[in-house]
């Protein structure tokens, strides 16, 4: 028996949403035992739940049994095999990504963050009138003497240039490594 509602005008009342979610879970086998028996009971005793269950079950059965897959052209596999004939399998990424470098970069940034943190905390006046809350209230990042760290524009520019150069060198090093590995594996593009 068909349980679809044939009227296009008929929509789902918003109160059905929760019921539908629980019923879909039941149909998909995602409910736990307790929930399953509870839903089974509801389906058996409550007409509204029974009707909705049959509706959803029909959709489920149609979808699980009648979705068809489209087929590409007959030559598809041949085309793919011809195309991949032009390439070699690339070496696994783990072979050319050196973990030591990753850890080195991580360590560098952690040290930088740690350094800034220690310096900033060192600037705080810990001897407030009331211990605890006063120390937090007195902390003002604007009052931190950043000039001790970067005392002029030239220093900032110097640091920035070094950082950029460092990143460029790292990029060149990784690129070289990757190229070497590809050559070793005989990969051509």
């Amino acid at each position: 028996m068909n349980t679809f509602n044939y009227s296009p005008e008929a929509g789902n009342p918003s109160g059905d949403a929760e019921m539908e979610i629980r019923l879909w879970d039941y149909i998909d086998g995602l409910s736990n035992n307790e929930e399953r028996s509870f839903i089974e009971q509801l389906i058996a005793t409550n007409m509204e739940w029974k009707k909705k269950y049959q509706e959803l079950l029909e959709v489920h059965q149609l979808a699980s049994g009648h979705i068809t897959l489209d087929e590409p052209s007959m030559r598809f596999t041949k085309n793919v095999m011809e195309e991949i004939g032009k390439f070699q399998i690339a070496p696994a990424a783990k072979n050319y990504i050196d973990k030591k470098i990753i850890w080195g970069i991580t360590l560098f940034f952690l040290l930088m963050i740690g350094g800034f943190l220690v310096y900033t905390l060192g600037q705080i006046n810990w001897s407030g009138p009331v211990a605890g809350s006063a120390t937090i209230n007195q902390y003002n990042p604007a009052k931190v003497d950043w000039a001790h760290f970067f005392n002029n524009t030239y220093t900032n520019v110097f640091v920035m240039v070094n950082v950029v150069l460092g990143l460029m060198m790292l990029d060149m090093y990784l690129g070289k490594k990757k190229k070497q590995l590809r050559e070793k594996a005989g990969i051509t593009e």
């Binding site: 028996m1 068909n2 679809f4 509602n5 044939y6 009227s7 296009p8 008929a10 929509g11 789902n12 539908e20 979610i21 879909w24 509706e55 959803l56 029909e58 959709v59 489920h60 149609l62 979808a63």
Partner: peptide, 23 residues
């Protein structure tokens, strides 16, 4: 869940007669 609800709505709206034929 929402996708299947929308699929159901599409079938109800556009294939009502087919559904009737099938079932």
């Amino acid at each position: 869940h929402r996708a299947r609800t929308r699929l159901k709505e599409k079938m109800e709206t556009h294939f009502a007669e087919e559904v009737r034929d099938i079932f």
